[in-house]
Design a binder for these strands. Structure first.
Length: 480
RNA sequence: GGCGGCAUGGCCAAGUGGUAAGGCAAAGGACUGCAAAUCCUUCACUCAUCGGUUCAAAUCCGAUUGCCGCCUCCA
């Protein structure tokens, strides 16, 4: 099945055909490094990591570029507030970003360029736009002449008149048109700056992506991605800059991920209702967060809540329990002949990769793909006691291969389950020693057939949210 | 005001013309001394509402209602 993707530019799902067969150039807008990353950044980056993985799993050679915007008004403001050089802020938050992404198990992009390391390319691009009449100098600033570019607003599907009608844009005397945007900003005294034909200054917000994407991927990219909120003005302006300069289409497929909502409201810095990745990871395992973010289609809004995270945790545990079950069964050495294997199980295992791949090929439908995975998990659990080890090994391998496309289930199952237990144990009212003592007492009571005392202990622990698990090997416990 | 998106069972969530995936929760059963886990069964004659197109619509078209987003920095 061919891959189909929803293209924001055309507003429809299209078959994905790379410009150069077998190769994909993908550019994703990274972050402006002036603060900790929030869960919205987590979603965008996990989504495009999943897309990156899926493209590669299809045998495509992907060049993935994700930039750092490391010079910007917000960085300068923060530096002024903290009384430190601007690059101390940017370098610090680049490290923080890298760390957050590593915890979320993201694969590294092929290139992670920084705006400040591409000033010559940016200046050259601005000069080209001036030379071609798409930009003009005004004082020490350079602006893009939006009404000169025919395709302006084709991505966000608006028109200039409507934009101005409802605009809350301050009239800027230096601009020819209120919608013109800055390509280069003259430096005020004390601000970081670079030499340019227009005096000392720094790049505007959008120009670095045009310059860096062209440098690493050429004038036309296969995929350009980012959050929906970047459609306007950021991506619109990138199109204006790049296409005016090159005279060629900038991007073949525009992909945008939906927002993370808090209580059905958009989470954003300006609203102040945001959670940083680090905050979330204090309460939830990184893999659970990743699983949660992939449990909805990437273009839909996803509602972040304690309940939804808990459900994601239960879901991921369910998958891991099945995998742990296979491990235990294989370790036990027991086997049955393969010809006795349940036909449905055989089919579920054999057809899994195909179903999973089809779901992913349909505009990266991770929710459907996970549905297929749960389908398989149920049959694994059912057939676990009697299936042949060969089939179980095959099931395990298939799950591992597909889960890797989502970037989940990378842990040893037993280790993951232990990790979840430890996390829950850490905020328990009772110590493990106390629990063990009670379990020992209960074992004595049960040996003496004193089930009344045994049940008392079970209930006592249950009140503390501790559930006892009896098995032939003895009694273990878990946090409810 | 302009533009765009969404409305599926108690909750989360797939499904874009062929007769409603999956997860969580819940109920019953198997298993267990009792539990837990797991398995089996049940759980939307119906997809915001009203019209229309079609042999056939959650899926297409129109209208209505509600929610959300963008138009200003934002993943």
């Amino acid at each position: 099945m061919p891959l189909r993707v929803y293209n924001t530019l055309t507003g429809s799902k299209e078959e994905f055909v790379p410009i150069n067969p077998g190769k994909v150039g993908m550019y994703v807008c990274g972050v402006t490094v002036y603060d900790h990353c929030h869960i919205g950044h987590a979603r965008a980056n996990v989504v495009f990591d999943m897309i990156y993985r899926h493209l590669r799993s299809k045998g495509l050679e992907v060049t993935y570029v994700r930039n750092y915007t490391d010079i910007d008004d917000k960085i300068i403001n923060r530096a002024n507030r903290d009384g430190v050089p601007y690059n101390e802020i940017s370098e610090r938050f680049i490290k923080e970003f890298d760390n957050d992404m590593a915890r979320l198990m993201l694969q590294l992009p092929t290139f992670q360029p920084k705006a400040t390391e591409h000033i010559p390319e940016i200046i050259a691009l601005v000069q080209t736009l001036i030379d071609k009449g798409f930009a003009y100098q005004s004082g020490s600033d350079v602006f893009y002449r939006v009404d000169r570019f025919e395709g302006y607003l084709k991505l966000s599907k608006r028109n200039l008149e409507d934009m101005q009608a409802g605009a809350r844009i301050d009239v800027d005397e230096r601009k020819e048109h209120p919608m013109d945007f800055a390509l280069w900003k003259g430096a005020k005294p004390g601000e970081p700056h670079w030499e340019s034909p227009w005096g000392q200054g720094r790049p505007g917000w959008h120009i670095e992506c045009s310059a860096m994407s062209t440098k690493f991927l050429g004038e036309t990219l296969d995929i350009h991605g980012g959050g929906k909120d970047l459609i306007f003005p950021h991506h619109e302006n990138e199109i204006a800059q790049s296409e005016a300069a090159s005279g060629k289409p900038f991007v073949k497929y525009w992909l945008h991920n939906g927002f993370v909502n808090i209580n059905s409201e958009k989470m954003s810095k300006s609203l102040g209702n945001f959670f940083t990745i680090k905050e979330i990871l204090e309460s939830y395992d990184a893999e659970v967060l990743r699983f949660f973010l992939l449990s909805a289609h990437y273009r839909s809004p996803i509602d972040f809540s304690d309940q939804n995270l808990k459900e994601a945790e239960l879901g991921l545990e369910r998958i891991y329990k099945a995998l742990a079950g296979i491990d235990e069964r294989l370790a036990s050495g027991a086997n049955t002949p393969a010809d006795a294997d349940n036909a449905e199980f055989v089919e579920k295992v054999a057809g899994f990769a195909g179903r999973f791949g089809d779901a992913m090929d349909d505009d990266f439908n991770t929710a459907l793909a996970l549905g297929h995975l749960f389908d398989l998990v149920r049959v694994i659990n059912r057939e676990l006691p009697t299936a042949s080890t060969g089939l179980l090994e095959q099931a395990k391998a298939e799950v591992a291969k597909m889960a890797a496309v989502l970037g989940i289930c990378d842990s040893v199952p037993a280790a993951f389950l232990q990790r979840m237990k430890d996390r829950k144990t850490s905020d328990m009212e009772m110590s493990a020693e106390e629990i063990e003592a009670l379990i020992a007492e209960r074992a004595e009571a049960r040996k003496a057939k004193n089930f009344k005392r045994g049940d008392e202990i079970r209930d006592l622990l249950l009140e503390k949210n501790i559930v006892l698990l009896d098995s032939a090997q003895g009694t273990t416990w878990k946090v409810k």
